[in-house]
Amino acid sequence: MKKLIACFALGCFFAGVSTVALSTPEEDRVAFQNYYQTKFSDVPYDDFINGVYSIDMPSREQWQTLEEFPPYELALEQGETIFNTPFANGKTYADCFDNGGIGIRQNYPYFDLEQGQVITLELAINQCREANGEKPFRYKRGKIAELTAYMAYTSRGETINVVIPDDPRALAAYEMGKKFYYTKRGQLNFACADCHVGGSGGYIRTELLSPALGHTSHFPVYRLKWGAIGTLHRRFSGCNQQVRAKAFKAQGEEYRNLEYFLTYMSNGLEYNGPGVRK
């Protein structure tokens, strides 16, 4: 009898483990979104794209005032100029992207089957530049952020639609991003999830921690702290350093896979970049 119970317990354990290991990206996404909709039941689903301002009403009013004359406006104009300025060979960014590069932001990042890696919009821009004989932009701030701000603006209102193709390499990239998100790092021993899953809605010092759902919808962002517009990978880098972990390279494999996972979690929400944040 004891052996029977032991076998049953072992069976249950392995059944549990295999369920854990076999959760699909779509199952993850549904669980992820349900978690936040339950935790913040007063927040309408569509409002999660506003990050911390979906749960912080006093700050929301200040933010809405800022959005009336947004500090990223100049970056938008500069981004449009960059977008429309031909390369030395006469071609433009429009030649590199579907639909001439307009209204495509919501489809990034995607897994490129030929290259066998996650392609973010920033990486695609630099691949376009290099293919046309231009030097690549730096990845955290400046022209890359201005250009993606403009391209993001043309995607406002479009639904985030990150696809994970039926390819083991794509699934592996997604899983690596997922692992990164839930892994504790640095001297302070924090995972991204510690602040933005369990800790969301709570405080670190005076800062209210935002829900992770919708986190990538509004990038690039003009951060008042930066006094400039910056990319998502700049923010990833800052988060890692805040927990006293060595940051990874912007547009390196780690952050691209993280962006792949995190953006997939927001599939179904609207894209609303660029944004402004504290």
Partner: peptide
């Protein structure tokens, strides 16, 4: 340690 623990934090 994290190699074994991270999966336990995934939202289910």
């Amino acid at each position: 340690r994290e190699g074994a623990l991270w999966e336990g934090r995934v939202i289910r």
